[in-house]
Structures are given as structure tokens and as C-alpha cells.
Computed example of a mutant assay.
Amino acid sequence: MPPTPAHSRPRSLALLPLPAVLLPGAVLELRVREPRQLALLRACGRTGGSFGVCLQRAAAEPEAAAGDAAATPAEDGTEACIEDFDVDAGGVLTLRIRGGCRFRVRRTRVRADGVVTGEVEWCAPDPDEELRPEHALLALLLQRILEQAGGAQADPTPAQLDDAAWVGWRLAEWLPLTARQRLALLQQDDPHARLQQLLALLPE
């Protein structure tokens, strides 16, 4: 199914600040413990909609004060789609979410139940552009990482390994990066510039 055009997507989105960055196409496992998280999921369940994940300011800006900063979202985030859920042995709800479209938060408000909602501007989808020769090393690196990891992504297609956006997002997902580094990559609109940022992050 083709993605919903940006102009047709909702401008208001429930936001979940987390100490991690959700990237397009990437998966996060989420343990739902806080009342505001449960309220957010109940609201999404009633409307059948998705929600947004943003890095919480306390993680994005270490100098920020604790407390409210932990519940305040950074300005850039990713739509989260629930793929699966379960309840663990301790009775805690666990979710498997996958990243969709990127967005930028223009303003936020906090509802009475603690859920943060934001007026968002959706980012344009990544263009379908081939990997440039100067980034061929990154595709080889990604191929080896995925082979070692195994699983569903262990055997990427040649088309995927030649897709600048796909290679960039999957490397950003699998490399041992900090949350702030992933946020900087999420903020980058150009897939080739994103690959150049990744190249600069590799050890000598």
C-alpha cells in the first residue's frame, strides 16, 4: 500500500517522548508502564490512528533539567505503527512498533491525562536515489552487519543495497550510535548527506 500523502495526514498527533530515537523502517520494543503511555494507547485505539515517537529532551540535551524534560519531546520525530503486542510474565504490556514517516513538531500541549499532543508538519518521503560511489563502502558494511545479525534482513536485495535512503536508515539503526547521533541523522532530509554523516561517524 503506498504511503498516505503528507497533505492528507493528520496535523495533530499524540506524541510519546522516549530516551531512544525511532527511525523510519526501524523497530523498537516498548514496555508500557506509565499512566500517560496507557492513556496515549487508549486514545489511539479509539481513533484507530498511529502516534509519534520523539526523543525526550532530557536525552537530546543532557544539560536540560530533569523532571519535565523527560516528558518533553524533541522537535523531530517519527510516526509509530504498532506491529505486535504482548503481556509479559509480570503483567507489563509490551509493544513492537515500527517507524513510518518523519515529522517536525511545531507546537505541543499536554492534556489533562498527561498525554502530549503536537501540531506536526510531515516531512517529504525520501527520494528514490541510487547510492553514490563514495558511499559504496557503507553498503558493504551494512551487508556484513545484516549477515552477522541474521533474521529477516540478513539477505538484502541488490536494489535495497543500492538505495541511498534504505542504506542510510538501516545503518543508523544497526550501528552503535548515541541517541543524539541518531537524532541528527533523523533531522537530515538529504539521503546522501545522511550517508556522509554516517561516514564521518565510523572509526578511523
Rank of each mutant, 00 (worst) to 15 (best):
M1D: 08
M1T: 12
P2N: 08
P2Q: 12
P5R: 04
P5K: 03
A6E: 13
H7I: 12
R9I: 05
R11W: 02
R11N: 07
A14W: 11
L15I: 14
L22S: 13
V27G: 01
V27R: 14
V27L: 14
E29R: 14
R31H: 15
V32S: 04
V32A: 05
E34L: 10
E34P: 05
P35M: 11
Q37I: 06
A39P: 00
L41Q: 00
L41K: 00
A43V: 00
G45F: 08
G49W: 00
V53L: 05
C54I: 01
A58M: 07
E63N: 05
A65E: 15
A66R: 14
A66C: 05
D68N: 01
A70N: 07
P73W: 12
P73R: 05
A74T: 09
D76G: 06
G77Y: 10
E79D: 06
A80C: 07
D84H: 14
D84T: 10
F85K: 04
A89N: 03
V92W: 11
T94H: 15
R96T: 15
G99E: 11
C101T: 07
F103H: 02
R109I: 00
V110G: 00
R111V: 00
R111K: 04
G114V: 06
V116M: 11
T117G: 01
E121F: 11
A124M: 04
D126R: 12
D128S: 14
E130M: 14
E134P: 02
H135K: 05
L141Y: 12
L141P: 03
L142I: 07
L142D: 08
R144N: 06
I145L: 15
A149G: 01
A149R: 15
G150W: 08
A152E: 15
A152I: 09
A152D: 15
A154Q: 14
P156V: 09
P158N: 03
A159I: 13
Q160R: 14
D163Q: 12
A165Y: 08
W166P: 02
V167Q: 11
G168S: 14
L171V: 04
A172E: 12
W174Q: 12
P176V: 03
T178I: 05
L183N: 02
Q187M: 11
D190V: 03
Q196D: 15
Q196C: 01
L198R: 04
L198T: 10
A200N: 06
L201D: 01
